[in-house]
Write a protein that binds this DNA or RNA. Sequence first.
DNA 1: TGCTACTGATGGAAGGTTCCACCAAGTCTA
DNA 2: TAGACTTGGTGGAACCTTCCATCAGTAGCA
Lengths: 336, 336
Amino acid sequence: MDVARAAGVGKSTVSNVLNGTGRVGEAARRRVLDTIEQLGYQPHQGARSLRSRRTMRLAYLMPPIQLEPTNLIMMQFLQALLTAAAGQHYGVLVVPEAADPSDDIRRLVADRSVDAFVLSELQPADPRAELLHRLGMPFVCFGRTDRRGRLAWVDIDDAAGVADAVAHVIGRGYRRPGYIGYEPRTYWDAEREAGFRAGLAATATATARATDGDGAGVLRLADDATARASIRSFLVSARPDAVLTGSDKIAVIVYGAAAELGLRIGRDLAVVGFDGSVGATLLSPRLTSVVMPVEDIASRVVERAQLLIERGPGDPPGEILPTWLREGQSTTGPAA
Amino acid sequence: MDVARAAGVGKSTVSNVLNGTGRVGEAARRRVLDTIEQLGYQPHQGARSLRSRRTMRLAYLMPPIQLEPTNLIMMQFLQALLTAAAGQHYGVLVVPEAADPSDDIRRLVADRSVDAFVLSELQPADPRAELLHRLGMPFVCFGRTDRRGRLAWVDIDDAAGVADAVAHVIGRGYRRPGYIGYEPRTYWDAEREAGFRAGLAATATATARATDGDGAGVLRLADDATARASIRSFLVSARPDAVLTGSDKIAVIVYGAAAELGLRIGRDLAVVGFDGSVGATLLSPRLTSVVMPVEDIASRVVERAQLLIERGPGDPPGEILPTWLREGQSTTGPAA
DNA sequence: TGCTACTGATGGAAGGTTCCACCAAGTCTA
DNA sequence: TAGACTTGGTGGAACCTTCCATCAGTAGCA
């Protein structure tokens, strides 16, 4: 270690300065820092991780792109995750998730390539989570998991988000809100739909039946191919004057269907999206959407990962972050 | 190394088996492989890179998400890059590109964290490329650079892609094709526009003035905010019956503007996108688009990176891949 | 003074690979 | 059969850190 020689100190002292370990006097610290600056010295990652068993790396299992612009929000999350990790001096190894990711996971763990994993799009009894748990590798999930207890996750309050949106459109004067989401496959499909019903119930009692009973009801989409047609007939038969949706992507399709039916967005039909993806702001009129705070989520995920790495398990398992409503022109108020 | 002991061979032999170096007899090789399998042994990445000066990692500088769904294609590229790299046993460290990425670059290089860099969205005289070149770190660019000579890049034939698209719409019977792109900022903005003119010239001579002279002309967009309005007035004043665009994203805006003007896509106005992003296939009618082969690009990028790492510079600097036209319903033929 | 406790700093060991020089045994050649 | 070459294989050094035991010096205290 030539920095040590140049600074006239022992190599351990340099190491201690760099890692904040041990005791170092002010004079020595200064001298070491100066020579480091001067020589542009950077510790060798490999040697460091070999000895310290820390890589300062996270692995992110990146879900494959489906044929859905939905994933734009996942890209925003990725970006936020990378930035948050960088802020804590972690690098992120992004791993494309194969059909069966277990081999990749096992390799990365045995490899000692990373200190922790980040998972997203959790499924009930997620096999990736099970495997990581078995291997004793720390990991944090974006999205809940139903494993009771130990696992660390960060999620948003899907139900409250939609309920807020219901309150918003009611407040704007719409009277027959409906909900369009997916056939519940994931946790949040169900959660958002439940949020709609809850929001409806809340306003119905609070404002003495501001809405007529169940509103315009709920549409559950089976797949993307038939989505547009289903939405059209829902708009015709249920006659909602406002539509809450399970994602910005669905909102986009609603825009298309409304255009075909000659409905003016905002006036004849309010539309609220979910995600707050940047793409949705390009719609005209601009889409009101329930925004999930990807930056906050990412920060918390990284912080929790760091805690797991440094102190091991022990924190409260889950954590729920609030959403907020970004108002566009798609919910300005019904036609007089 | 307990594998060596378990297999009853020297540790060098295990290393040789693993890396295909040195000479190993068939019997010993079998024995080693068996014990490795049995013990589930994986070499420690840190130790490996410490000694061999190879990390089997690439760094990808990820450009920040602008407010553009354009970037969906960059997400597809990212996915393709990760997959291609994994195929060659490389992991990818994705680094969010800061306003000034030079510190991050320097750190990663001094760190010995990666073997090579991958850059995208190259600019003329790109400072990142300059820096990496100076530091002696191998790197491959997706997109051309104007540094003469040494740099490795992979790109598509933008001009030919648009020219093909011109030929396609002419072949379908449209007679006044126009082009909508951006004010040329990058290499490919200019290239695609040039491809339009070239395509026009080619069909004009080949089919004895199938088109009327310059077609409907060219519109250059300054920014996204005013894009929709500019496009509307272009459609009204220039009266094209077909529009080639510089990106799928512009095509989406054209769809919107056409709807406002009561133009039926495909019949009254043909539209061709550029990128072949998956999102564009969700448009209705489905968008015809010049597809850039992201998987091929990514494979070539990774292969070239590997060559640079293993053999150093020496290969021909650049490499151009062809595009192809994915036909949708946006160019079926003009109204009779 | 003699003992403990603390501070600041040190050199050597260890961590798990790959690389290198070398070796034993067998094969070929003159 | 001596010498050269080939094949299959070996152990030790090196890679660059961090960790640990230890030490010299100083201060505190009875």
